[in-house]
Amino acid sequence: MAKFGLDRLIFIAVSIVVIALIITFGEKNNKNESETTTSVSATIVTTTAPVSSTTEALTETEPSTGETDTTEPVETAPVERRTPNVHFFVPESPRVDESYFDDVVFVGDSVSLRLTYYNMANECFGDAVFLTSGSLGVTNSQWGLYEPKAVHPSYQGQKVTVADGIQKCGKKKVYIMLGINDMAYYTRPDLFAQFKSLTDSILEKSPDVTFYIQSVTPMTGNKNGTTNDEINEYNALISQYCCQKGWYFVDVASVLRDENGLLPRKYCSDPDGMGIHFTDAACEVWKEYLYTHVPAEALETTAPSTTAQTTKAATTTKSTTKNS
């Protein structure tokens, strides 16, 4: 019995050791596997693309033409070429300081989106707020907040309509550059009507704001279902409207076009693509234009010594209602 018990004890002991070893190594392997699994399964929220697509997306690619060319020299004194048929605009003024922009909200599409990030990198516009969004237009900025395909901008992470965003941020100088994304889909009168509707909706919620309407900047060619002539026509229309309403028209496009009326390739981050988006060099020119084209009334509150005057009187009777 004792002998039987001893043998049995040895057998059990050996079995336990073997089982213990199996468990130990098994746990280690399982731990590695489970860690890997946890790392992946517990974290993925939205991946929908197959792995092969992911891999393809990661493949190192040559810099696209859309890349920012930071090596280009910045043109500090670009030539001003007025937008045709625009006779009312904010003329050159003494350069304001950064604090001028503390009360500014920029509203715009993907062109202005670049200025948003330019400002993020260079912190050149004081406390200005940017309500900018890719594909934003005069028309879709008035859509309902949750309409499918709406591309409303965000204010502090919260999606807002332009009118609501301006009201929420409380800024009083509203710089708008919108329209390029609408031109292929709306006639000039329709688009102009939408523009009026947008400004009305903003004023309804923020009656004490002042509009600074920026001219829509040119493309490197006639692209995206529209032409530079159509852009010019639209700019002329809204500049006249600014004159009627006592708002300011800031002809940014005047320093971002070449002798042929096109956006210079050196200013374009996608010259062979859409041909409308900016490089940092273009943003620098844009920024400088805004700093040096401030209406006298606004200058008085920020730089009392200046005497620059806004040329408001030159309203034209020339027809600007040509339809596309």
Partner: peptide, 29 residues
């Protein structure tokens, strides 16, 4: 929400960014 926004914004005109957004995920650990 930001990622969803990037998808909608880029979908109509920036295929590269749209593709990146589609393959992008939010990780929590």
């Amino acid at each position: 929400a930001r990622l969803d926004d990037l998808k909608v914004q880029s979908q109509s005109y920036d295929a590269e960014s749209y593709s990146i957004a589609q393959n992008c995920s939010i990780f929590t650990n």
